[in-house]
């Protein structure tokens, strides 16, 4: 996958050739952020039109799963950030351990998410049943599946990317640059969850 990001071998380029990958990843992250910005726009408009239905929808969701996942992702973000620092200072072994921890936490996130999806399916609220709800709730559930689903896909993509980079670090003696851009992608996944969590798990109708 990152073979695609192999840089031009070019003598007249700027000396800091690493900046190609960094810059490419930054621009890509901006693009990804716009994708989610569109979804948050839909959520905002929906919530303005159907405040009560959205509050009910939030209350119906499994708050503990969303909350646990928030802490899981934040911790994984810390792990991968530490891994970059360790690899930069030359301790390849502890960097690899931290990357593995990140990936395990990512899998834990997906496991919890899967449990939640299973629970929704058991309730008959699956993605194919969105149209069966009342209007406001249908919109909420559509956005729920859309946004958490797209986010989960990004988690999976991030895991694959991290796995590939870890393999490169372990067997190809890759430097910290590649790990750094992979870490950035993982942080973006975290950053988006930071907004999804209150919007889908916290902002319910009444205090509890």
């Amino acid at each position: 996958m990152t073979e695609l990001f192999a840089e031009t071998q070019d003598g007249v380029a700027l000396a800091e050739r690493d900046s190609l990958r960094r810059l490419g990843m930054m621009v890509f992250l901006a693009s990804e952020a716009m994708l989610f910005a569109g979804m948050f726009t839909l959520y905002a408009a929906g919530r303005i039109r159907h405040p009560q239905a959205f509050a009910d929808g939030v209350d119906h969701n499994l708050r503990w799963v969303g909350t646990a996942n928030t802490y899981v992702l934040l911790t994984s973000s810390w792990c991968i950030a530490m891994a970059v620092v360790r690899l930069r200072s030359g301790s390849r072994r502890s960097a690899l351990l931290l990357v593995s921890a990140t990936m395990l936490l990512g899998l834990l996130f997906l496991g919890l998410k899967g449990y939640e999806y299973q629970w929704h399916l058991a309730e008959g609220d699956g993605p194919m049943a969105v149209a069966r709800h009342d209007p406001g709730i249908a919109l909420f559930m559509g956005l729920y599946w859309l946004m958490t689903g797209t986010h989960a896909l990004h988690v999976i993509a991030g895991l694959i990317f991290l796995g590939y980079v870890a393999w490169r670090v372990a067997y190809r003696q890759a430097n910290d640059r590649l790990l750094e851009v992979a870490a950035w992608y993982w942080h973006l996944v975290d950053l988006i969850w930071v907004f999804i969590w209150p919007l889908f798990y916290l902002l319910g109708r009444v205090s509890r």
Partner: peptide, 25 residues
């Protein structure tokens, strides 16, 4: 989100020309 972007993604330390796209987004 700002903390994650500034510190974890390192936007706070990046060269201005590198984060134009991020600011724009």
């Amino acid at each position: 989100a700002t903390l994650i972007a500034l510190v974890f993604i390192g936007v706070a330390l990046a060269r201005p020309s590198h984060i134009i796209a991020v600011i724009l987004a």
